Amino acid sequence: MITAYTLNGTSLDIQPLNLEDSLPPNTLWLDILKPDEQEQLWMKQLFVEEVPELDELDDIEASARFYRDKDGLHIHSLFPQRMGKEIDGINVLFTLRKDMLISFREDDLGLMRLLRHYMRQDRLEAKDAPDLLLEIFQLKIEYISDLIEDGYKTLEATAKQVLQVDDLRQTMSDLMLQEGGNGHIRLALYDTRRALRFIKRSLRQSGNDEQRKWIDEMLYDIESLLPHTQFLFDKINFQLEAAMGFTSLEQSKVIKIFSVAAVVFLPPTLIASIYGMNFEIMPELGFDYGYPMSLVMMLMSACGTYYFFKRKGWL
């Protein structure tokens, strides 16, 4: 799917493209989603060197994620995406030229839909391709801050569930999802910081003071958000340890009950085993009240053991 965003005065018009269409004039942004073989052939007219491949999006080396060639600046950026309770990371490849921004992605991204919504409401003030790219990164940082705020709310809810035995399994699952999502958020922040520093170095000659100031502000925002992700990690680990500790405590209570029951019934078992022996000379076996006496002895020994445990505070 290929979508062109053309500059119309101070606003951007959205125009889907077919393979038979040529690139519209005043195209400021060309967004390419899940291109097939024919669409990749169509893309060759846009690139002097190699056309980006889908399997290149997940490269993690800095030399593969941020570089410059004849086609312009190439920036691989990781975007967090909420999917239900989970947060996943989606890579987007941007090619920045003086007059046009090209984005290349293999998954739909909610942030792009939000950007199109802003375009329809004329809420974007992009004068050129670098401005548009910085607008995208600005929205990305705002979206990440919203995800961090949601993380705090989730941990407030799980903190109340940690001591509830019935919901402990679900609480552990929520905490593990939150830990994985927070990892994607932190990774996206580090990736965005690297991308912005690369853009700042690249725009040192061609960019203007306003763009460089804008980048500095976003870098400051990222530095202020990173401690929050570390705090969330600490809070998640604390709640996980508390949940595991509470589980161990509940298991200890069950084991304690079995241990006390075994000790309480140990004296009666001893008495019963003594009188269950088959020796010929056992005077008690001839008593008329030997059987009731043994029952009373077993009952008294069990009650005495229970009273001793109770008085010591072990029950």
Results as ranks from 00 to 15, higher is better:
Asp55Ile: 02
Leu57Ala: 05
Asp59His: 13
Glu61His: 13
Glu61Ile: 00
Glu61Gly: 12
Ser63Glu: 15
Arg65Phe: 03
Arg65His: 03
Phe66Trp: 01
Tyr67Glu: 03
Tyr67Ser: 03
Tyr67Arg: 03
Arg68Cys: 02
Asp69Ala: 01
Lys70Gln: 11
Gly72His: 01
Leu73Arg: 10
His74Met: 11
His76Thr: 13
Ser77Gly: 00
Ser77Pro: 00
Phe79Cys: 10
Gln81Asp: 13
Arg82Trp: 08
Gly84Phe: 04
Gly84Arg: 01
Gly84Val: 06
Gly84Gln: 06
Lys85Tyr: 10
Glu86Val: 09
Ile87Met: 04
Asn91Thr: 09
Asn91Glu: 14
Leu93Cys: 12
Thr95Asn: 13
Thr95Tyr: 10
Leu96Ala: 04
Leu96Ser: 06
Arg97Val: 08
Asp99Met: 08
Met100Ser: 04
Met100Thr: 05
Ile102Tyr: 10
Ile102Gln: 08
Ile102Lys: 12
Ser103Phe: 05
Glu106Asn: 15
Leu109Pro: 06
Leu109Ile: 12
Gly110Ala: 11
Met112Gly: 01
Leu114Trp: 10
Leu115Ser: 02
Arg116Gln: 15
Arg116Leu: 02
His117Leu: 14
Met119Asp: 09
Arg120Ile: 09
Arg120Tyr: 10
Arg120Leu: 10
Arg123Leu: 15
Arg123His: 12
Arg123Thr: 03
Ala126Glu: 08
Ala129Gly: 02
Pro130Gly: 02
Leu132Gly: 06
Leu134Glu: 04
Leu134Pro: 05
Ile136Arg: 02
Ile136Phe: 07
Phe137Thr: 06
Leu139Asp: 06
Lys140Tyr: 06
Glu142Asn: 14
Tyr143Val: 02
Ile144Trp: 02
Ser145Trp: 07
Ser145Gly: 07
Leu147Gly: 08
Glu149Pro: 05
Glu149His: 09
Asp150Pro: 03
Tyr152Thr: 04
Lys153Gly: 04
Thr154Arg: 15
Leu155Tyr: 09
Leu155Phe: 03
Glu156Cys: 02
Glu156Arg: 13
Ala157Arg: 15
Ala157Leu: 14
Thr158Phe: 03
Ala159Leu: 11
Lys160Tyr: 05
Val162Cys: 00
Leu163Thr: 09
Gln164Glu: 11
Gln164Val: 09
Asp166Arg: 15
Arg169Ile: 11
Arg169Lys: 13
Thr171Cys: 10
Ser173Phe: 01
Ser173Gly: 00
Asp174Ala: 15
Leu175Phe: 12
Leu177Glu: 15
Leu177Val: 06
Gly180Tyr: 13
Gly180His: 15
Gly181Met: 10
